[in-house]
């Protein structure tokens, strides 16, 4: 019984470990930052092994609507001095 349990654990571990590099590679290529880079750089970018959700790194330019950009027609908030409240 113990042998089966050990075998099942080993197989599960191997399967999980072999899956990580594939995920890293796809993340790297989708962000466009490391096309053609070695697998070592991919794994270092993911923050190490552990099987967690990979974090997609998206450059600011890929989210053109993510930040307010002038000209918006009104003063941006960083041009309003401390303590001045304007009607919304």
């Amino acid at each position: 019984m113990k042998r089966w349990l050990f075998l099942a654990t080993t197989v599960a571990c191997l399967w999980g470990c072999s899956d990580d590099p594939a995920q890293n590679t796809s993340t790297s290529s989708s962000s466009g930052s490391g096309g053609g880079s070695s697998s070592s750089s991919s794994s270092s970018g993911s923050g190490g092994a552990g099987g967690g959700e990979p974090t997609a790194l998206v450059s600011c330019l890929d989210e053109v609507d993510g930040l307010p950009r002038p000209p918006s027609g009104t003063l941006p908030c960083e041009y309003i001095p401390p303590g001045l409240a304007l009607p919304q």
Binding site: P76, L86, P87
Partner: peptide
């Protein structure tokens, strides 16, 4: 800024001042 009155030498910023309510 002086109170809610604003000045800029930059014409683009002057347009933004004119377009901001309460300024």
């Amino acid at each position: 800024w002086r109170g809610s009155d604003a000045y800029s030498f930059n014409d683009a910023t002057v347009d933004l001042i004119k377009g901001t309510q309460g300024v």
